[in-house]
Design a protein around this nucleic acid. Sequence first.
DNA 1: ATTTACATTACAACCGATTTCATCTATTAT
DNA 2: ATAATAGATGAAATCGGTTGTAATGTAAAT
Lengths: 341, 341
Amino acid sequence: MEKEITIYDIAKELGVSPTTVSRALNNHPAVNEKTKKKIFSAALESGYQSNVFAANLRNKKTNNIGVIVPRLNSSFQSSVLAGMEKVANEAGYNLIISQSLESYHKEVANALTMFNSRVDGLLVSLAGDTENIDHFMPFLKKGTPLMFYDRIAEHSNTTGITIDNIQAAQNATNHLIEQGCKRIVHVLRTTKINVYADRLKGYKYALLENDIPFNPSLVLYADLVEDVGEEIVNKILKMDPLPDGLFVSNDSCAASCIKHLKLAGIRIPEDIAVVGFNNEFISRLVEPNITTVNYPGYEMGELAMKNLINHLENPGDRMLQNTNKITLRSELIVRASSKRK
Amino acid sequence: MEKEITIYDIAKELGVSPTTVSRALNNHPAVNEKTKKKIFSAALESGYQSNVFAANLRNKKTNNIGVIVPRLNSSFQSSVLAGMEKVANEAGYNLIISQSLESYHKEVANALTMFNSRVDGLLVSLAGDTENIDHFMPFLKKGTPLMFYDRIAEHSNTTGITIDNIQAAQNATNHLIEQGCKRIVHVLRTTKINVYADRLKGYKYALLENDIPFNPSLVLYADLVEDVGEEIVNKILKMDPLPDGLFVSNDSCAASCIKHLKLAGIRIPEDIAVVGFNNEFISRLVEPNITTVNYPGYEMGELAMKNLINHLENPGDRMLQNTNKITLRSELIVRASSKRK
DNA sequence: ATTTACATTACAACCGATTTCATCTATTAT
DNA sequence: ATAATAGATGAAATCGGTTGTAATGTAAAT
């Protein structure tokens, strides 16, 4: 390829020093306006492109922000990412994204890669089987801003951003109870993840409030992948008596359950009333439309990124250090799958 | 923060030269095995972290691969990204992702950012209103591998990877005709994008094959966003006579159409048989299940990334230069939404 | 005319890894 | 014994911006 143009070339061409060129291009106040103009137009004309490597080497920052997600191809996660990308892009940061595929080991590897790539900040939604967050310690030790979202590390005095999953689940369950449900099945992934653990709590609180005894056999654990409905419905059909309510921690999965319940001749919501979670697009398409908890993923992404960048650019304020948890509002959206009138 | 450890520190500690440390850490054959061992353990012990900036500056590469997608939060695109991430990660590359939000201007800005970030390679799926690809010229001029996927730039002698959209649409349309459809509506986004232009062609070819005259008023243009079904169905309901087939370029949108058609009392597939596109998860959840074209997004992502990386690591072979188009297999999946027995 | 103040600009030392070329030692061939 | 070769290591230049400090120039003040 052709040789690249450097500030030295421009300096030589104009008979000034590289220092002045560098300062001019960075809009340093100590450079005469006329000189700046001259330098800018020379740079433009020559097709000069700043060498980020050299700048990074001096400045010790990359303008890259890392994100580790459980999976890229998830309705919720991709909304979050979209929100993050928008904010980062507007602020002049690049997004480096990697996925843990719900595996602790991959997450550890990803964290290491991110660390070695020297991202300026890191946003993480934890993998399904992550039990400790030691692999993020290097970031904390080094002072790199680190923030968790959705699936956060509790009891770790790191900053996390979530919705109030307990309250949301409690509302959802209460709603089912109001509709006359007495035997409510709750489907979740694993209590290892705060998100699900909290929802289970909320479910229990609602039962308690309504003097319904908690029955552990009504709590089902399943990978909330899209096709898991059949397996769940099979378990439900074996219950005697049949439950009359179903609260699934994810709309896609709820949709899949509804499909298989209907195949089994069960009427929704008359026989079993169903509530999902996330307010995914799918909740408005299947029949009946699914009652769900609106989880503002896009907004969460925006907010998380705004906070991180704010922290990067105002290292003075100890916001991130002092804030332990940011909670977003969420609300129950009642639709046909649970409304018994 | 504490001072970082450099190869100079290690060199001093062990009484060797930085040269040897650098070579050892890079597993250079000219370094004695014993020396290597010594250096490796000293590096490990001291918590040495290679400074990528310095290495990048010398090597003139970042190990970052850029991806520009129309939207992150799309079922298809996030699958593609998942495939790309997996391959890139395994090969030791990072993914820098940005979204054009279907806007030509944002795409231009993103391309510039990617260029300035000096990504080693770039993968692009074009925005909806992109009409030329001049903004990618700097990459070509510089010799940075560039590859389009799904929404490719035709007639541009750049490399692109797609499915055979013409054939797929032709098969889909033929299938509807076989089911007895005579008045088939086709819904697409815009013929500016190769993907949709090709599908329209395939639709026309199938009609031609079956001696059905092409009726332009049966072609509907719409943003294929998720909630657009109502608008489309309203147009369909105004047609007289009513169409008996519907071929939508996207499952989410097809699902939304089915919902509103059913609300209008139209039976699927008896009154109108429906075919979608992409084989999204949703196609298996709504009722009736949607006949669709299986578009292997994940595999496309894998393949695109494999090709790009292969090119990066074997600059010798002129594969990318010489290959103009890679075509993936896709097939029609017949389900209840179109099967009339 | 001389001093003081301020605005511009330049020098040179970084940042940390890589690599060319030279050097030195130990081994093998003549 | 001497030359030739291979093996291992090091000195120093390089990649291209950035920045503390010194130097220069100019205008205002005395």
